[in-house]
């Protein structure tokens, strides 16, 4: 069933978006049936912007990130849609073309660097790999140059350059994550996809890493697609946030708007699930029930069984599409029909 084509965010009308995801569908077969891990997900990411993709476990945010960078593991496969990176559909590239943009233009920071680094190779080797895999023809770097660049990168992320000969297990968790970030920066990409980069780290180390990333962004001006389940972190760090639920994008807005003025009932309830350190102590309730089974999702709006303001009838039969409901603010909910603005009005 096709959804009405969402009107795209015209935030920076001067430039085309760097990344444009359109109707992305990711599926995989299980013994019990077909799972739609991502269902017609569409959003734009602009140059020099941090776009956060938030949601709970199983919502599909990691799936979307993996699909965009084409590192989905079987049995998951892309069943439809486009991922336009600088106007080129990444999903249609062959292996060679893919290798070309991989790391040079889009790189990835994985969750829990513990496992993202091979334990038997030095940190320097793993940085050098990224550098050497992409030299074709023009100015081959000598070993010396590669090593120097590796040391430079370590320095950039706040690690003593002499650690270039260390093995991953000799570094602390925070340092390992910095190494992974250094590798991601190696070829000066335009977009870095960060999949839960600080989830496995303590809160103080997390702050150090996020500050470091901010600094590097100021220096190099890359965009970030930031995946996390930690909404507080997300809102603090991102320019715009997209909330996912059960494989669908249900709300997209600038981060302060998501925090101060959430529109979708799921987002509203979600924001009500985080205890805060400042402000008054209010009673929080969370959301009753659990996320739906993606093999047989509820008909109509996927959130309606847990929604306290669902409309009898429409919410149970008709799936809402992502519509613009304000300046740079989109949501997928029937109750917001009266707020829908036309593309021309939202400037």
């Amino acid at each position: 069933m096709t959804q009405p084509m969402p009107t795209f965010d015209q935030a920076r009308t001067d430039a085309e978006p760097l990344l444009s995801v359109r109707d992305l569908v990711v599926e995989y077969h299980t013994q019990r049936g077909l799972v739609r891990a991502a269902d017609h997900v569409s959003f734009d990411l602009h140059r020099n912007e941090v776009f956060g993709l938030a949601g709970e476990s199983g919502c599909g945010k990691s799936t979307v990130a993996h699909a965009i960078t084409r590192i989905l593991k079987p049995p998951a496969h892309i069943a439809g849609g486009q991922v336009l990176f600088d106007e080129v559909d990444v999903l249609k590239l062959n292996d060679d073309q893919l290798r070309d943009i991989r790391w040079r233009r889009i790189s990835i920071v994985f969750q829990s660097a513990m496992n993202a680094l091979s334990p038997v190779l030095t940190v320097g080797t793993q940085i050098a790999d990224a550098l050497q895999a992409h030299e074709n023809g023009t100015a081959q770097m000598t070993r010396r140059q590669v090593l120097d660049r590796a040391r430079e990168l370590l320095d950039l992320v706040g690690i003593d350059p002499d650690r270039v000969n260390s093995y991953p297990h000799q570094l602390s968790g925070g340092m390992r994550q910095r190494v992974v970030i250094a590798i991601a920066l190696a070829l000066n990409p335009e977009l870095i996809v960060m999949d839960e980069p600080t989830t496995a780290l303590d809160v103080v180390v997390q702050k150090q890493i996020m500050d470091q990333i901010r600094e590097l962004r100021n220096q190099f001006g890359f965009s970030i697609l930031f995946i996390s389940h930690d909404l507080s972190l997300m809102v603090e760090f991102s320019d715009r946030v997209g909330i996912m639920y059960a494989g669908e994008l249900v709300e997209v807005a600038p981060s302060q708007a998501i925090f101060n003025d959430p529109q979708h009932p799921y987002t509203v309830r979600l924001m009500n699930s985080f205890p805060t350190l400042s402000g008054p102590r209010v009673e929080l309730f969370g959301i009753p029930g659990s996320p739906p089974d993606l093999i047989t999702p509820p008909p109509g709006c996927r959130f309606h069984p847990r929604c306290d303001v669902a409309l009898a009838g429409r919410c149970q039969t008709e799936r809402p599409g992502l519509q613009p409901i304000g300046a740079r603010h989109m949501a997928a909910c029937h109750l917001l029909d009266d707020k829908i603005v036309n593309k021309e009005d939202a400037s």
């Binding site: 290798r99 790189s107 496992n115 334990p119």
Partner: peptide, 22 residues
Amino acid sequence: SEDYITMAQAKGLSDRRVMYTY
């Protein structure tokens, strides 16, 4: 199935390098 293999592939390393060195 380890993450560092996915990472190596994502870095754009050749199949040969990933298969042997990693």
